[in-house]
Design a protein around this nucleic acid. Sequence first.
DNA 1: CATGAATGAGACTTCATTCAT
DNA 2: AATGAATGAAGTCTCATTCAT
Lengths: 197, 197, 197, 197
Amino acid sequence: MSAVNAVDSLPERIVRAAVKLFAGKGFHGTSMRAIAGAAGVSIGAIYHHFSSKDDVFLAILRQEYERRRVAVEELRAQGLPPREMVQRVARLHFELLGRHQDSVKILSHTLPREHPRLHRQLQALEEEFAGHVARLLEEGMRAGEIRECHAWTAAHALLGMARAVTARALGDDKLATELRQRGPEELAELAWRGLRP
Amino acid sequence: MSAVNAVDSLPERIVRAAVKLFAGKGFHGTSMRAIAGAAGVSIGAIYHHFSSKDDVFLAILRQEYERRRVAVEELRAQGLPPREMVQRVARLHFELLGRHQDSVKILSHTLPREHPRLHRQLQALEEEFAGHVARLLEEGMRAGEIRECHAWTAAHALLGMARAVTARALGDDKLATELRQRGPEELAELAWRGLRP
Amino acid sequence: MSAVNAVDSLPERIVRAAVKLFAGKGFHGTSMRAIAGAAGVSIGAIYHHFSSKDDVFLAILRQEYERRRVAVEELRAQGLPPREMVQRVARLHFELLGRHQDSVKILSHTLPREHPRLHRQLQALEEEFAGHVARLLEEGMRAGEIRECHAWTAAHALLGMARAVTARALGDDKLATELRQRGPEELAELAWRGLRP
Amino acid sequence: MSAVNAVDSLPERIVRAAVKLFAGKGFHGTSMRAIAGAAGVSIGAIYHHFSSKDDVFLAILRQEYERRRVAVEELRAQGLPPREMVQRVARLHFELLGRHQDSVKILSHTLPREHPRLHRQLQALEEEFAGHVARLLEEGMRAGEIRECHAWTAAHALLGMARAVTARALGDDKLATELRQRGPEELAELAWRGLRP
DNA sequence: CATGAATGAGACTTCATTCAT
DNA sequence: AATGAATGAAGTCTCATTCAT
């Protein structure tokens, strides 16, 4: 029993079930009862580990943005040439899409403005991530390897274009398939041409 | 009184109130009771003109995408050089932001996945708009004035970067102010450099 | 125009539409809007000729019980032997079923207890009709051609058995078909054997 | 308090309250709020035990038809002579009327055609019960102790006459009192004379 | 006579959350 | 730590009826 719980703690089970449901039916379309059922735990158990439904959602957001932060840290640590770096950031969403499709869906589609507290926290997480990218760009500019421009605009633009294309690529029609194949390279090219000196 | 009503039909009053509320509190954060109160009409009156809450939301979406469609039509009619065209599309969101801030907020923040019907219709509207842009780009490619690339990826990327930057520019902090000032030009430059031959 | 209205007055159109709808969807399942739509008139027009939805329903009930009253009057006027008379009353519902299926459905299935006023009036109409039958039976007893029994019990029993069998015969399955064929004779026989001296 | 609750579970309290209200005001005249109030529980508690208002109604119907099924089973088990059996079935409604007046009211007066699902289920329950009676009659015919006739017609007729008389006997006027006194015997006699060889 | 836009009470139902066990 | 029965506010929507035109 302890071995099982070690790889599959109760909070983890809850979050995993919640991610699937939020991705599929959205925040308001997912009830605590549904999460409890999908996770195979009681409703009370969820409230034992999370203070509210918002808190479950936030846990997911934090997890997801932590993944992005780590990815950017790694990029920076590798000391790649700016060109490579810009292109990799542009491709980042696609890579995460491959590994964490449900989480990406949540970020792409659900901005629950109806919860001021959630909304503020989500914005803070986005801002933090955009900040990492902006700093990357500023370093490139100082090194003369990225053209002079407004780093924050460029950072938000970079992330916005990536998000829009991955969001469209989530479907299962012909264009979605095409976007999943050509999207990463096209985006990388677009970003680099837009930012090179 | 009759003069006021003449320019201010009941459905218009309802939509105007709904836009404000949806933009401020989101779809689920806005109740029919609240819309009725803000519009100064009875709940029943809303249902006399719209078949459901979804229908009110859709009316707003259609109105907003109609504005975009018209804007793109006008661009094309002017026969501008591709460079100008690409830059104007990149600036489009900002121009609409100035005139219809609440509507832009709705488009930037609310994709109600919890309503399959709404979700599908919103995607269709987005797709249609992206299609207009993609066609614009393809014409530019045929004329050799835009570099060869995957038009649909570029179209979604163009719109995605514009949306992300305008969304961030909605706030009232220092960065938001900066983005509203420099965003349009920065975006236009980024887009053109990314797409020129 | 007057010629058309002569055979198809507005109140008649309304009642005819209402009968169909009440029979198919019940009293609460039928809205005034639906009646207006089916009759091809405005809602206001209905209120011009009937004081309320209840009033429309009552008009149908009165019409239907009038048919029954007339049928019993005719029976009595023919001075048939009691055997024949009892059997004909037993068959009465079936004959009306053939000609006025929707009205019979309403009487068989809808006793809107939720409307005290309607309920009382419907009971009064039923009572009046049962009274006609009871009197028929009492006359037969006085003539020694029907066995002595409690006429009102027998009258309600006679009508109740006929209603139950016709109600079941309204369906379209095998048993319903059988009941429509054999029901009238079976009922007539059952009634006569139960009541003959 | 625990002793009281032991014999009076929450679902039982809800059903008991609902029976009284449905019998007095009908299905549509009874709101969930009213049931909750009468049962002394919250509205949510009702939905915790029943999936819908229809479900509460169905629970009552099932309970009532179960009583009838048991009564007929017992009749058959006693191996009474057919005459006795037919007369007892004819009296059955009256006996149940004495013990469960409200439930009988519901069955006598409410056939909610407006709810297709409820309607179908009620018909199924009625059909099942009529089937028990029809089988009883067929056994009598095979034994030569009931005249040859269409068993299903006779079964529906038997139940229909009993229902009609008991329905009229529910009132508190002079005739209702008379029917409660003489009805059982009169019905029993009528049924036996109609069905004996 | 006729219209149909407007009313607003009230219906059923859902759901996040609590708490006694 | 865990359960799940119970709560009740709040949600969307329907509908008989009215009344200005």
